[in-house]
Amino acid sequence: MALVELDRITKAFGRGRRRVQALRGISLTIARGETLALVGESGSGKSTLGRIALRLVEADEGTVRILDRPVRELSAKELRSARRDMQMIFQDPFGSLDPRMVIGELVAEPMTVHGIGADHDERLARAVELLERVGLDASAMERFPYEFSGGQLQRVAIARALATDPKFLVCDEPVAALDVSVRAQVLNLLTEVQRERGLACLFITHDLSLVRAVADRVAVIHHGAIVECGPAEEVYEHPRHPYTQALLSAVPGRDPDRRSLLARAAEQPAPQTRESTGCTFANRCPLVMERCWTDVPTPHVDAAASHEVEVACHHLDVHRQQALQ
């Protein structure tokens, strides 16, 4: 049974000619103890989807169910108490922690809000435990955010998110703002606490190279539509959708003896100017067919495959049908 269910979520920003369709009917599920990586480029709508899941942004249509609660139908008060089970870690640790509060108060705040612990002293004691769990010293309690580096603050943000003992965690690009040498520490910590507590985790990232290390499943989002979704290893090793393939081929390797990034980049077709009402990737797709410009592809599972990978692509549909005949 899925702990988080998003069903046919749509969202548009702006009005009239400036109207931008940010999400075009997205459905996702995340099970207890599972990490789903939502991978996409800037403007794909991935952060909006994360905020809709927590109802920090209102969706236009669709349903969100977390622990069987219809999140979009909760009253303001019900929503506030439901937030105990769903927490978020933001990309920018400097911006997401109130600069006027000391670390101790920041970590204790969610507990205060949700009435966890008998009194404030108990909450502060728990805050110390949480800080120690994320690898910080109790002396951090009385210091201000500006006294810490980005990596340390992201640990504080993790401690704060864990303070209410949530079941669902949204991580919005949690390491994108961090230095390379501290990224791994924070990712390891996130993976550890996710395992330890059996969290359902929505891990939003633009960096496909992280996916295999942190996620069980991956959903690739392009212009507000999921183009491919399946087990992380399978999607990484055998990307099926042309967009997933393009994304993966753009990740730099690290062996100077086997350079291929620039050659791969040269193979990508130049974007066409034609507007597509069908597939969002049509103007950049090397395999584009006439049908792609007009029909919206629906996600299908390849019945013959051993893996549950859903792909929304007309080209693959044609192949599949040919294979069946």
């Binding site: 937030r83 809000v113 209410t164």
Partner: peptide, 21 residues
């Protein structure tokens, strides 16, 4: 500010947001 959204996400009500943040 982002920390206001973060506080909202962790369940702070309007009163607390106003007074504490």
């Amino acid at each position: 500010e982002l920390y206001m959204e973060a506080a909202r996400a962790s369940g702070c009500g309007p009163g607390r947001l106003l007074v504490r943040h």
